[in-house]
Amino acid sequence: MKSSAASFNWPLHAALVAALLFVIPLALLTGRSSAGPTFGFGGPDLAAAILFEIRLPRVLLGLLVGGTLGLCGAALQGLLRNPLAEPGLLGVSSGAAFGAVLVFYFGLAAAQSLLLPLGAVAGSLAALATLYALAGRRGDFLGIILAGIAINAFAAALTSLALNFAPSPYAALEILFWMLGSLADRSLAHVWLVLPLMIPGWAMIVLAARGLDALTLGEDTAQSLGFSPKTTQWLVIGGTALAVGAAVAVAGVVGFVGLVVPHLLRSAVGYHASRLLGPSFLAGAVLTLSADLAIRLMPSGPELKLGVVTALLGAPFFLRLVLRSRRGSLA
C-alpha cells in the first residue's frame, strides 16, 4: 500500500486488479435459480432488483470481507513473525461468532436482522478487550498468541454451550450453518454496517506498515530505528479486531483466506511485510469472490457454504506451497 515507487510491484498489482475486474462482472452476471446457475438478470421488471439489491451487495461484501481477511492475515503474520498467524488465532473470529450466536440464542435475530451483526461486533471487541487485559501490560508476542488461543478456546466452548441450550433444533442448525460462512442474501444495509468499522481497521493496519518492516529485524532493532513495537502491535491487533469483527458479523466465519493468501504472495513481494499488505487485500478479495462464484456455478441443489469452498480452493494451494518449501529447505 504505502510504499516507495521503486519497490512497488506493478506487475503483481496489475495482475491482481485484472483478476478482480474479471471476476466482479462474472459474479454480477451469475445468479442461481432452482434449476442451478442462471446468467443474466431475469425479465426487465426483475433486472434492477436482482442486480442492485441481491447480487451487488453480495459482490461488494465478498470484496470487503475477502480483502479484510487477506490484509489482516498478512499484517498478523508480519507482526507475530509466525506464518501460522491468522485472524482466527487472536480469538477475534470466535468472539464475534459467539456474539452473533448469543443474539440467535435469545431469539433477537428474528426481531431485527441488524442485531445479529451488531452482536458479532460486540463479541469481537470483547475478545479484544480480554486479549488486552491478559497480555496488554507485558505485550510480548508469545503472550498475545497464548492469550489468543485461550480466548479462542473459551469462545468456542461458550458457543457449543449455547448450541446445547438452543431453543429448538432448527435454531441450532441455523447457528451451525452460519458459522460456516455465507454471503447469500445480504443487502446493501450490511455493506453500510461494515464500512465504518472496516475503514478505520484498514487504516490502523496501513499506519503500522513501516513498523512491521522494522520488526522483521527484531524488536530491539525496531526500537532503535524509532518504531515502537508496542504501538505497531496494538495498531495491527486493534485494526484486525475492528475489520475482522465486522467481516464475521455479516459473513460468518470464512476460514483459510487470511492464512493462505499471504503465503501465496510472500515470495512475489520479496518478504517485505509492508509490501505484502496491498496484494494480500486484492488476492483475498479475488479468492473470496471466486469461491462465492463457484458456489453459484454448482449444479442444482442447496447452496454450499462459503467457508467450505474457500477451504476447498485454498487447501491444495497451501499444501503445494508447504511441499515446495520443504523440498527447498532440504536441498
Binding site: S34, I54, A110, S113, L116, A184, D185, P302
Partner: peptide
Amino acid sequence: YGSAEEILRFAPDVVIAGMYTSTFTRQL
C-alpha cells in the same frame, strides 16, 4: 432452495418462512 433471487422470479404476493429460516433472506 430458499434464496431471495429464486423467490423474486416466482414473484408471490406472500412469502411464508420459519422463524429460524435465514434472517438475511427474510430481511432482504
